[in-house]
Simulated scan of single mutants.
Amino acid sequence: MLLQNSFPDIKIKGNSYIPVNDSIFINTTKKDLILLLERSRVLWKRINNENISGKAEHPGFSYLSPMEWYQFAEMHIRHHIQQKKEIENKIKSS
């Protein structure tokens, strides 16, 4: 998965119930995403410029190094963006 830099193109059945939280607004989400991007850039610089060793356990993917965690996070976000596009396409076509 990390070598291919993407999750496999398979559907995994999960919990179909997703609670709706009406207190989340678009502007708040955008601000949170901008903050996340800024923090991500700082983290990227640390990972690349410091001699960091060791691994931390991921509950589903064994142990990951800091660089692997960073790669995994980017892949995860990209995966959700693709899921969003698929949902939007289904809505448009129905």
Rank of each mutant, 00 (worst) to 15 (best):
Q4P: 00
Q4V: 00
Q4K: 05
S6G: 00
F7A: 00
F7N: 01
F7L: 06
P8L: 03
D9C: 05
I10N: 07
I12F: 12
K13D: 05
K13N: 09
K13A: 04
G14M: 07
N15R: 13
N15L: 13
S16D: 12
S16E: 14
Y17V: 01
P19H: 07
P19N: 04
P19S: 08
P19V: 01
N21P: 00
N21Y: 10
D22A: 15
D22G: 15
I24W: 15
I24D: 13
F25A: 15
T29E: 13
K30E: 14
K30P: 02
K31R: 06
K31D: 11
K31I: 05
K31N: 14
D32L: 11
D32C: 03
I34N: 12
I34K: 12
L35C: 00
L36K: 09
E38C: 02
E38W: 01
R39I: 02
S40Y: 07
R41C: 02
V42T: 06
V42M: 08
L43Q: 09
L43G: 01
W44R: 14
W44E: 14
K45R: 15
K45G: 04
K45A: 11
I47E: 09
I47L: 10
I47Q: 03
N48V: 03
N49C: 08
N51R: 11
I52A: 04
S53M: 05
S53T: 14
A56E: 06
A56Q: 05
H58M: 06
G60E: 14
G60M: 15
F61P: 05
F61R: 10
F61K: 13
S62E: 13
S62M: 07
Y63I: 05
Y63V: 12
Y63L: 12
L64A: 09
L64E: 08
S65W: 04
S65C: 04
P66R: 09
P66V: 08
M67I: 15
E68T: 07
W69S: 11
W69K: 01
Q71A: 02
Q71H: 04
Q71K: 10
F72T: 06
F72L: 10
F72Y: 15
M75L: 00
M75H: 00
H76N: 13
I77W: 01
I77Q: 01
I77F: 03
I77Y: 02
R78I: 01
H79N: 09
H79V: 02
H79L: 11
H79G: 04
H80F: 09
H80R: 04
H80D: 08
H80G: 09
Q82T: 03
Q82G: 05
Q82D: 04
Q83N: 12
K84F: 08
K85N: 12
